[in-house]
Design a protein around this nucleic acid. Structure first.
Lengths: 225, 225
DNA sequence: ATCTGTATGTTGTCAAAACAACAAAAGGAG
DNA sequence: CTCCTTTTGTTGTTTTGACAACATACAGAT
């Protein structure tokens, strides 16, 4: 990803490549290279800049009390990371950011992004709107995950998640973006138990499943369980 | 809460009462009254304005598939609501907003907030920074909740939550802002099971508890479980 | 002090889900 | 096609936590 490609990302959407380049110099953006495994930020750090992945990818990881590492997210070209911490001034990181491969990252100081400069105010304010939109979007994603993992039973979680997917797709029949293991992780349940529950629900006539293709059936789904 | 009070809120922090008043007229803010039980927004609505509670309070509620209602949050004077949906343009609400009592609310069109006007740009951009900061902060709160409810066992959740509280307070001894029931709700577990687990952990010497006062003990907490 | 309501702790039962181990199906690569 | 890998489904066992019911402790009011 070069500066031209940036104009297609969520953060710079709406700006032309020329404008992107102008903004970057105006903002004093710093590009840096990282080799595989190198740590860009670590738990406890207080960051003031957000990162834009230009090429390669970074992993957002957490080390628990017992030393084992969990990958929370993977961030690829055009996507940003650490923006939440940079925007909530002063909050120390609860995660590590590690290069998953040779990676080039652009760092943007959030204060300078938010301090509207006298020139180019219109693109600049578009950038700010994009940043806010990204943050709000992330917010909704997190809320939804909490929402779908709130029911105590696997069936409850599945119905919550699948109902939402049906509404979102505007149809009782839809595909989900997860395989079984990923869905189990998302809903915070055991994969085999998830498979099992789906089988049961299918036998009870609540839905039809084939791989990641689902169909919710009948009004009975409001009554059962 | 009047316009003077607004200057002490998270959204308007940094602006004087005079400046707040100037901004409000510049932004075309609309104040409205609601009587108890009145619905301000409902599931499925697409909103373009955020709400600031001036007096009274509103409840953020969810109606599940079976018609029962869950209160997700309560928003009081000086706090804002619906800002996430208003900022993530086009996302329909997944919740209802209901007046819990006679309530006065100020609605701010987010587009106008984000469209920097020619006058008063400095306060205006402070407002935008505040909004982004609120969003980022909310983001971190949601992430933390997801994080602390990720472990499958009650003990795991407790250790995750308590460790964080210890780090945040900078001491092994600290108070938490929840009673048992609230903590159980936050960690998504049964209250009595939570009490029980705390007892066990205390017997095992992992910690000391008295009401909402906690003390994490020794290095053993890294080894056990 | 007593009464009352609320918060917290304790115990036992039971259903649900984690876990483990395996079988079956799907999808590629040669 | 076969071989290999990955994904998904099935079954049985074991652990866990939800739930109910109750006991105890605490705080406020009278």
């Amino acid at each position: 990803m070069d500066f031209i490609g940036l104009s297609k990302t969520a953060l710079f959407r709406g700006a032309t490549p020329r404008e992107v380049e102008a903004m970057l110099s105006c903002l004093g953006a710093q590009a840096r290279q990282f080799s595989k495994g190198e740590m860009l930020c670590r738990t406890g750090d207080v960051v003031t800049a957000l990162g834009v992945v230009l090429s390669g990818s970074v992993l957002i990881e957490n080390d628990d009390l017992w030393g084992s590492t969990t990958v929370l997210d993977s961030v690829g070209p055009g996507q940003i990371f650490a923006e939440t911490y940079a925007c909530a001034s002063g909050e120390p990181l609860m995660v590590n950011v590690v290069a998953a491969e040779p990676t080039e990252v652009l760092f943007l100081n959030v204060d300078r992004v938010l301090r509207v400069c006298s020139h180019a105010c219109d693109h600049h304010s578009k950038l700010i709107r994009n940043l806010l939109s990204i943050s709000a979007q992330k917010n909704l994603n997190l809320s939804r995950k909490i929402f779908h993992t709130a029911p105590k039973s696997i069936r409850g979680r599945l119905l919550s998640y699948l109902s939402y997917q049906a509404v979102r797709s505007g149809s009782r029949s839809f595909a989900i973006p997860f395989n079984r293991q990923q869905l189990a992780d998302y809903l915070n349940v055991d994969r085999s138990a998830l498979s099992n529950e789906l089988s049961k629900m299918q036998k009870e006539g609540l839905l039809k499943v084939d791989r990641n293709q689902f169909e919710l059936l009948g009004a009975r789904q409001q009554m059962e369980f």
